[in-house]
């Protein structure tokens, strides 16, 4: 009885969750004239015209590539620097540790909207404007602190006797860290990578500000395509659907790792 109530509640939530996305999919498969002429719960004359319109613009697929490159770069950099730092915070006591940790977290609190302009100036000064690395570095501002925070939680769950034993056995720090410690928190690394990917993938303001043509993200290109053709709901919806696809694919591929990481429970 109780299980049933839970199930029904969850089912209702999932329906509410999926309906807005379904509605956009519905719109993307109808022509603009059709959308404005009649209200329909599902597309009666399915047309791929909107998608064709987008695909004829040659810059769209570079948008995907650009987004993927800077997101991957950002995830890699964030993990690479956050892993040793999180280890330091979870194991050692050092001068200024608490202050440093809090300072790191404060960087998530800076309004990105404001930093857009100084970022633009900074990256044009160092000649990184319109490169993938610029966006990846800018996104480190909020992803690195988050990665350190999450990883520190996972690492604190590993008993320190393991470190001690390894050092007594004569392991050097890098060897211990890479061959013993990181495998132990695999799930945590997976969860962290997921969050880094997520926050870098969905951010638009900084990505758009720091790029002109060479590294323009997919969502910015979609927006541009739309504004060029005027307000066309079918086209807008199709562009929207296309920006959801990569994220949906990523979660589909990592679903089992996610389940494992979340089962360990330390986020």
């Amino acid at each position: 009885m109780k299980g049933r109530k839970k199930f029904v509640g969850l089912a209702i939530y999932f329906i509410l969750l999926l309906v807005p996305i379904y509605w956009m999919l519905n719109m993307s498969l109808r022509s603009n004239a059709d959308i404005l002429a009649s209200f329909a719960l599902y597309p009666k004359d399915i047309t791929l015209m909107n998608y064709m319109n987008i695909f004829t613009d040659s810059s769209w697929y570079m948008g995907y590539v650009n987004s993927m490159i800077y997101v991957a770069l950002n995830t890699a950099i964030s993990l690479f620097v956050a892993l040793p730092a999180a280890y330091a915070f979870s194991r050692y006591q050092f001068v200024g540790d608490k202050q440093l940790f809090f300072w790191l977290l404060t960087n998530r609190m800076a309004p990105a909207a404001v930093f857009a302009l100084p970022f633009f100036q900074l990256y044009s000064t160092v000649g990184l404007l319109d490169t993938h690395i610029a966006v990846a570095l800018a996104h480190c501002l909020f992803n690195v602190p988050l990665a350190v925070w999450i990883l520190e939680g996972f690492m604190s769950g590993i008993p320190r006797e393991i470190d001690e034993t390894a050092f007594i056995d004569g392991y050097s720090f890098p060897r211990f860290f890479i061959t013993i410690f990181i495998p132990l928190i695999r799930a945590g690394v997976g969860v962290t990578a997921f969050f880094c990917f997520m926050f870098s993938w969905v951010e638009l303001l900084l990505a758009r500000t720091l790029t002109v043509t060479e590294a323009k993200p997919i969502s910015a290109i979609m927006t541009r395509t739309i504004s060029a053709t005027g307000l066309d709901y079918g086209l807008l919806a199709a562009a929207g659907i296309l920006t959801i696809v990569p994220g949906a694919m990523v979660i589909w591929f990592v679903r089992n790792h996610m389940a494992k990481g979340f089962a360990l429970g330390r986020v």
């Binding site: 999932f14 969750l17 999926l18 996305i21 997520m198 993938w201 969905v202 951010e203 638009l204 997919i218 969502s219 920006t243 959801i244 994220g247 949906a248 990523v250 979660i251 589909w252 679903r255 996610m258 389940a259 979340f262």
Partner: peptide, 11 residues
């Protein structure tokens, strides 16, 4: 997990 995470991965 997949369904719930979906909105989080939309730009």
């Amino acid at each position: 997990l997949v369904t719930i995470a979906l909105p989080l991965l939309i730009p």
